[in-house]
């Protein structure tokens, strides 16, 4: 990661908020991935002796159980894994599609650029919720559909950002030098344009992850996302809301996981942006 490397890491280290956010994210991810080995409960088993039981250490239901007696610890961790996975996959799509789309539109310019940007405008004009409901009605509910629908719109802003950067890079002399050196359009875009937009791309991708997680939770909360018996943070929160007064832990446990994850991802993204932005440092 080249020129961004050492300097940026040093500047990032100088930001305690970003560093602690990163540590907390790492801890949450480690718990989500390794947690199941620490506790015998799984996500599906119904424990009839402890239905809607509060969090205790003796019963091995560390975070309590839900209405059906399923272990909330296991379900929250599974939900966190799903949420983070969707966030990461959608960011990957947004990087792959958005960066190449934006760089091509910006570099080639002219009519191609016009056409490509109109396509983006049409896509971003789609009311997202309506779009998701529409897809759900046609194809039935499935997790893959969630990936597709989030991926379909997640790259739009990235493409716009990259196009904007590319427009200014295209005017730079080193691009003229590359043309004069006999490099073809594809090579120039891949080797001389894209590496130079990597800074904003990383930052925006980092900030995309929490956005997508939030959006996924929102869809799941509405019942459009992950379906029973699967769990995501959104479905768990939706269940928890129903029992909020009698069994507050059902809301608080997945809710605080989501809140901590989103907060830390945002803080880290902000810190990364400041660290990579040489001009304001």
């Amino acid at each position: 990661m080249s020129v961004l490397g050492d300097d940026a890491i040093r500047r990032l280290r100088a930001r305690p908020a970003a560093v602690s956010a990163l540590l907390i994210i790492t801890a949450v991810l480690l718990i989500a991935l390794l947690g199941p080995w620490l506790n015998p409960n799984n996500t599906q088993t119904l424990d009839w002796l402890h239905v809607a039981a509060g969090p205790t250490l003796q019963s091995a239901h560390w975070f309590g159980t839900d209405r059906l007696g399923r272990d909330l610890y296991a379900r929250t961790l599974a939900g966190a894994r799903v949420s983070v996975a969707i966030g990461l996959v959608a960011s990957m799509i947004s990087i792959l599609v958005g960066v190449s789309y934006g760089a091509i539109a910006g570099y080639i310019g002219g009519r191609t650029d016009h056409l490509m940007m109109r396509v983006i405008e049409i896509l971003s004009g789609l009311p997202l919720i309506f779009f998701v409901i529409f897809l759900t009605v046609i194809f039935g509910r499935s997790e893959y559909l969630l990936f597709v629908s989030i991926g379909a719109v997640g790259w739009l802003t990235m493409a716009r950002i990259v196009r904007g950067q590319t427009l200014s890079i295209r005017q730079q002399e080193y691009i003229a030098a590359a043309v004069a050196g006999g490099a073809g359009t594809g090579r120039i875009i891949a080797k001389h344009v894209v590496p130079n937009v990597i800074g904003p791309v990383i930052v925006y991708a980092t900030l995309t992850v929490p956005q997508i997680i939030l959006f996924e939770s929102f869809l799941s909360f509405l019942g459009l996302g992950i379906q029973e018996p699967g769990a995501s943070l959104g479905t768990l929160i939706a269940e928890g809301v129903g029992e909020m007064e009698a069994a507050p832990w059902m809301l608080l446990v997945p809710g605080s996981f989501l809140a901590v994850l989103l907060l830390c991802l945002n803080i880290f993204g902000d810190g990364l942006r400041d660290a990579l932005d040489v001009k304001e440092a």
């Binding site: 730079q172 080193y174 004069a180 006999g182």
Partner: peptide, 21 residues
């Protein structure tokens, strides 16, 4: 031919090299 048989160097060396390579 560009870059092999017919080459050009520019006025400002500070901006003629791609910064991230």
């Amino acid at each position: 031919v560009r870059g092999s048989k017919l080459t050009m160097i520019f006025q400002d060396p500070m901006t003629s090299l791609t910064p991230h390579l």
